[in-house]
Structures are given as structure tokens and as C-alpha cells.
Design a protein around this nucleic acid. Sequence first.
RNA 1: GGAGGGGUGCCGGAGUGGUUAAUCGGAGCAGACUGUAAAUCUGCCGCCCUAAGGGCUACGCAGGUUCGAAUCCUGCCCCCUCCA
Length: 389
Amino acid sequence: MHSFRLEKTSPQTNARAGELLTPHGKVPTPVFLPVGSQGAVKTLTPQEVEDIGFKMLLSNTYHLYLRPGIDVIEKAGGLHNFMGWEGAILTDSGGYQVFSLSPLRKVSDDGVTFRSHIDGSQHHITPELAIQYQESLGADIIMVLDECPAHDDSPAKVKKATERTHKWAERCLKAQKRPDQALYAIVQGGMSAELRRESAQYLAALDFPGYAIGGLSIGEPKKTTLAMLEETVACLPEDKPRYLMGVGSPEDIVEAVARGVDIFDSALPTRVARNGALFSWEGRKNITNAAYKEMEPPIVADCGCYTCRNFSAAYLHHLFNCGELLAYRLATIHNLSFIAELVAKIRGAILDGTFSSFKDKFLAAYQPADEPTRLAQKQKWLKRRNLSQ
RNA sequence: GGAGGGGUGCCGGAGUGGUUAAUCGGAGCAGACUGUAAAUCUGCCGCCCUAAGGGCUACGCAGGUUCGAAUCCUGCCCCCUCCA
């Protein structure tokens, strides 16, 4: 029922085009999964997500476990049914929440004890429970429970987390009962090339149907991200899909495809959209900037998305300035459409052997955010969030 | 005509002798966000000098007191409320 078929590999890079077969349809790769943590891609209906061109999305066990509860969704006939999505679904195990909600948790070999960010109640999750929950939710692809160390954690801490992730992966494999779901392993290893290789090799030997690369793009410099990605991919089997978790931005997707990644997911395109940053082939554009106040053309002139076909940049600027809810929807539609188009172009270029030049042209035109500013602002945000608890 | 209250930076509104270029909102300007605790957060926001820093002009207007005033005094102008 599950399979991955490799169609073509790019000659000068490690980029690959392929196809995932899932119980809910075929998914061409490279592919980007929009994020619907709580069973909804924020601001959009499943019909709209489908119309943009997505065939698979990501949801989250941690969030659905807390609300509405796994049993509610199971009684509703599973997540597909509950949220009205007929395409494929990948559920994350909640491993990332163990990391990003770190002040509220405690990890042991047995599993994770954490406090709900909603009401403070205490919960315990083990690798076995993570699988059980995901089997109840019924996604097409499910993930092992992992421990994601912070990018600046000590080597000892990273090693411990990585080894624990390996043990947990084995337990997840043993706990799995449903044969119709593909269980993917998650490589960790922090920012150590050696640990990355070790982790990839260890998990590769367990013969999972797919491999995720975790613990990247969490605050480390871009160079490091790409270096770690290369180390990891080099130790993963050719014939299995590779999933770079939590990435990302248009430029990161292009770079990662060139290094052999097949699957992506990220909250970035939708979150950034809700805050007025829209993707274009020249880079991000902040629609709230005064320059757009009277701009008659759409945000991206030749964009075929619903937003650009029907509305001027000036109108979007206006909607954002007024805080109209439509602003968030139109911006989300645009950014997801942009990513869908980007990924389709990437795939097309791989198939006709022109990916390498496509990549160069894209990166030359696309102006990414300035890195020092990014990291400084992220630190401030995290500090503030931690203080506010 | 009488009594009282008030005039602060783009707006609202603190501040009643020095640490005030002036709290705080809003607006404005710019930036960030990567397995979503995010329709959130950050910075700038009188003028001039490239920055550290420095200079200039500022709290209705005009004078005055004082080492020093948005803050005290005098006069004038304007606004609001109540009484006639």
C-alpha cells in the first residue's frame, strides 16, 4: 500500500524526483506539506488547500491529543474524516513540541512528562503511546517519538538525546500494529557531523520505510544546517524517501532539494503570510510597507493564484492595515500557492535535467532575509516568550 | 457679566522646579517569524551631523523669578463646564 518510486536524479546535484504512494493517493516529490497542527491549515478550508494543489498535509499528535483528545477523533472515524480532508496526512509524533515547549517538560528514557500549554495539566507520553495515538488518528505517514536537542546544547546532551531517539525509534517500530501506515524514523545528532552520520546509519539499519531529518533550522547558522544535511543524507538509503522536518523557506527548500531531500513541511509560509510577508521570485515582500499603498498590480505580477488573479497589492495592503480577516486568508493562499508552484517547478526541472541551472537562477534572484537580524530577533522573541509564562 | 477647569510632540494623554527630547497608548515607518503556545514579536518615531556621540529647537503667546522652568509669577490669546 505504501511505496516510494524514484523517477529521476539530477545529474549535477543530488536532487531527485519521485512519487509516494499512500492509502490516500499518489504524491509526487519533491513535496511540501502545509502545516495543520490542530487539524486545520490556518484560515483555509481543505477544499482551498486542495485547489492550491496539495495532496498531503501535516498534523500534530501533541496538539490533537490535548484538544479535542485522541478518542474524539477516533470516534469521528479518524483524522481524515474529522477534518474533512481526503488527501494524505502525515502526523508528527509530538517530538518537536517536547523541544519547543521545553520549559514545560521532563524527558527520561521511558518517555516525556510535560505540562499542557493550555491548562497546565500533567501528561506522560512514551514511544508506544505516540504510536498508539497516531494509529488512532489514522494518518498515512506517522513519525517516531524523538528528542530534538537545541542547536547549542552541550555535546553530551546531544549525544544522550540522539541515543535516546534511537532507542525510542526501535520501540516505536515494535509498537506499530497497523500495517497500512508508514512509520518514518527521525535522524538527530545535533550539529555534530559524526553524530549525524552515526544516527543516520543506526536508523538506516532498522529499515524504516522513510527517513526524516530532525533538529535542523532551529536557530543554527544556515551553513551549519546545510553541512549537517549533507552528512545525514549521505548515510541514508537511496531508495527511501527523505523528509527534512520543519523546512521551510523558498531558498531553504531549493538548497535542500539539491542535497537530496524529498519531503518538506513548515509553518513558515502560512505564519509569515498572516504577518504580511508575501513570497515573490525576488524575495519576501512586506505588504504593509507604504510602497504598496497605491500599487495597482498584484503582489506577484504573473502569479496564477486566486489572490493575485483577483486583488491588487494596494487592496492587500489595505486589508492588513485594517486587520481584516480576509487579509490572512488571501496572504496564506498566495504563499502556499507560491510554494506549490516553486516545488512544481523544481520537480519539472529535475525531470527534464535542468535543475542545477534552475537552482542557480532562483537563488540569484531571491533575496533571503539577512541572517544576523534573523537570529537576533529570534533570540528576543524566545526570551520574551519564556518571561511571559 | 460671574465662578471654575484647561491649553504638552501627528493624535490621545502623563508629568507640577533639576535624573525630561519629555512616562504610556494609538497612528506612522521598518524588520523578524522554518516538525505553529504566533492575526505574534522587535526596533525607530522633534530637527541636524555617517555611528559612538554631539549640536540645535521645544510643552498656547509675550515677559519675569531662578544656578536651573513644561512645571513658579505677570499680562495676553484661545477652549470647555456651570451660574446669570
